[in-house]
Computed example of a mutant assay.
Amino acid sequence: MYQRLPHWLAQHIAALRVVLVLTLLTGLAYPLVMTAFAQVPGLDAKSEVTGADGEPAGSSLIGQSFTDTKGKPLVQYFQSRPSNAGTGYDATASGAGNQGPESVVDTADKPSLLTLVCGRSKAVGDLEGVDGSRPYCTDDGVGAVLGVFHDGGTSGRVTQAVSLNQACPAKPFLATYKGVRVTCAKPGTDYRHAVTVPVRGDAPAHPVVPADAVTASGSGLDPQISPAYAQLQTPRVARERGASVADVRELISKYTTGRALGVLGEPGVNVVELNIALDRNHPQQGA
């Protein structure tokens, strides 16, 4: 006569079977399949790139900062997008800034996302000789945000207006707000009870400086910039290299990739490979 296994034992045997099957699938079969797939011609390429001097110059999959020891842009190179990975493109510290659209007021130890964007846009505009203004940004490159006090708490007559991101003795970006003189922010003063009011200003709705020039990627490691940002930098790079704009644009086209599978993501220009190609084809004059 057939005797059933105890219920607790049957459960343990079933669990062991699941562990065994998953171990074979995910621990053995999957890695072997992926390893074999990686050997397919065209998929086994190395990401290491070689500089114009024949020495290793990084990876085509990880971006780099093209700046001097003081962090200033090297004008003969295309500039990458900002990075929050460590001190910039640190593969051991990949990550984002974790600041959202409501980050508009600077703190004592950290600028807001709005101020970061405003400052970067102004810097890019100055570097490229274009209008770097953006909505909700001041002329000096910080977030155009007021702290407004009302006699009724959050409503009623305005009694005080402070430019929160412009510490004294800075001149406020706005002279008056609803009939009240705007003052600079006094360091150490608590403005938490003020109503936060971003001010749009008269900047164009579509800024000249592209979004990827002022915002970091989620990983902080992306080596690509948008074709628009590459085109914005082209006149400067061509001038510094003594090359024609047409020749530099031809290189940009060569290192531009389209959308994945034709529909995913946006076209991008690999800055690392592009700058190495510039060193090979158009070395800087006098270098």
Rank of each mutant, 00 (worst) to 15 (best):
Q11T: 02
L16H: 06
R17V: 07
L20H: 06
A38I: 03
Q39I: 14
D44V: 04
V49Q: 00
G51H: 01
A52C: 06
A52R: 01
D53V: 03
I62H: 15
Q64D: 05
S65G: 11
T69A: 12
S80E: 05
R81E: 07
N84A: 14
Y89Q: 04
S94M: 10
S94G: 09
P101Y: 11
S103G: 09
D106R: 08
L113P: 15
V117C: 11
G119Y: 01
V124P: 12
D131Q: 08
T138P: 15
D139H: 13
A144C: 04
A144H: 05
D151N: 11
T154R: 08
S155F: 08
G156A: 12
Q160T: 13
S163K: 12
K171S: 15
P172T: 00
F173D: 15
T183H: 09
K186A: 12
K186R: 14
T189A: 14
D190L: 01
D190I: 02
Y191K: 00
A203W: 02
A205E: 04
H206W: 02
V208C: 08
P210K: 01
P210N: 06
S217N: 10
D222C: 10
Q224I: 05
I225G: 04
P227G: 06
Y229V: 03
Y229I: 02
Q233N: 08
Q233Y: 05
R236H: 02
R241A: 01
G242R: 01
A246T: 10
Y255V: 08
T256V: 03
T257E: 13
G258K: 04
V263I: 12
E266M: 12
E266L: 11
G268S: 03
N270I: 00
V272Q: 02
